[in-house]
Design a protein around this nucleic acid. Sequence first.
DNA 1: CAGCAACTATAGCCTTGGCAATATTCCTGG
DNA 2: CCAGGAATATTGCCAAGGCTATAGTTGCTG
Lengths: 183, 183
Amino acid sequence: MEANTFDDPRITAVGLLFEVHAGLAARFAAQLEEHGLSSVEFEVLTRLTRSPENQLRMTDLAAQTSLSTSGVTRVVDRMERDGLITRRACPSDRRSSYAVVTPAGLRRLDESLPGHLQLIEDWFTGQLDPAALDALLDGLRRIRDAVHPCATAGSRSAAPGEIPAECAEDEVEPPAAGGQPRR
Amino acid sequence: MEANTFDDPRITAVGLLFEVHAGLAARFAAQLEEHGLSSVEFEVLTRLTRSPENQLRMTDLAAQTSLSTSGVTRVVDRMERDGLITRRACPSDRRSSYAVVTPAGLRRLDESLPGHLQLIEDWFTGQLDPAALDALLDGLRRIRDAVHPCATAGSRSAAPGEIPAECAEDEVEPPAAGGQPRR
DNA sequence: CAGCAACTATAGCCTTGGCAATATTCCTGG
DNA sequence: CCAGGAATATTGCCAAGGCTATAGTTGCTG
C-alpha cells in the first residue's frame, strides 16, 4: 500500500481523540439509558442542579449545553412531560422562563450518578497512573483553552453568574504559532 | 456553596475531553462545509479512498463509520445524487453493492484535505510541544485500547457521531484494574 | 435437493434537533 | 412618552439518522 495522506500523524491524533470520545459517549449513553435518561437529558439535569436553586433560564441553559434555544425548548418539553423538570415564570422579566429541576428529576439524576462515575473511572481515569492522567489532562486543557468552545461541556465549579455565554460573535483566530514553538 | 458531586475530578476530566472534541468537531465541520462536505460525507470519502479500488460494500462502510447500514444507504444516496460516489453491483454476491468514489468525489476530498490538516495543526497538534503531544497521545491510546471502539480500525478524523458499533455481541468488560495500579 | 437460517440493501416510520419566522417583552434614544 | 431595535421563548418546517420490517440472495444442512 502506498502511504497516503491519511497516515499523517495529525490525522492519527485526531482519530485517536475522536475514537476515545465515541467510545466513552456510547458507554455513557448506554448506562444512562438504564436510568431512563438520554445524554442530553443528563446534561440538562447536571447543568440545572449545579445552578443556584436548581434552575436556569432557557437561554442560559442553551448556552451551557450543545443545544440551540429551540433545541432546549424541546428537551424541556419532553422532560417536563416526564416530570423531571418544570417551567417557572421569571418574575423580573416576563420574556424569560426558568427550567427548574423537580424532586423526581433530582432523584433520577442521583440514581444515575454513581454508575456514571464508576464508568468514568473504569474506562477513563482509572486506566492511567496519576502522572499520565495529569499529563493527558494538561494537554487537553491546553488545547481546550485554544479551541475555546466556551459554552460546551463544563468542568469548573462556576461561580454564579459566571456563565460563559457566547465567546464572541466573530471567529476565534488560531493562536498563531500556538503556545508552543514546536520544532 | 456546597461542593457537590460535579466537582469530582472524574467529571472534570470527561468534561475536558468532550469540550475538546466538540470544539474540534465544530471547526472541522465548518471548514468542510466550505468545500461542500458534511463531516459524515468526509468520513465516507476517507474510508472509501483508503480502501482497495476506492470502494467498499455498504455493510463494510457502515462498520467503519459511525453509521448504521440504513444510515449508509442514505448518505450514499445523497452523495450519489451529488456525483461524489457511485453504486456498483458486486459480481460475486448479488446481495451486495459497492460504493465507489467518482473522480469528482476524489477531487472534492483532495480540495478539502489541506485545509483540514492545517486546521488540525492550528488547533490541536500545533498547540503542544512534541513531548506534551506524545504524552497526550499515549494517554489517549491507552484509553482507546481499553474502551476499544473496534470498528474504527484505523484512526480517522471528523466524526461527531457517537455510536458504539458493537465490537462483539457481548459486553466488553472493563479491564479490571486497568493497566495501572491506581490508588 | 428442499428448507431454513443468515446476510445484504433498502424503505417506512419515528425522534432529534437546527434554522427561520413569530409573538411578547424589554430597553434605549429622541 | 414612544418608536424602533434587541432579547426571549416558541413553533413550523426540514434534514439526518436509527430501528424495524421486507425483499432478494446465499449457503448450509438434513
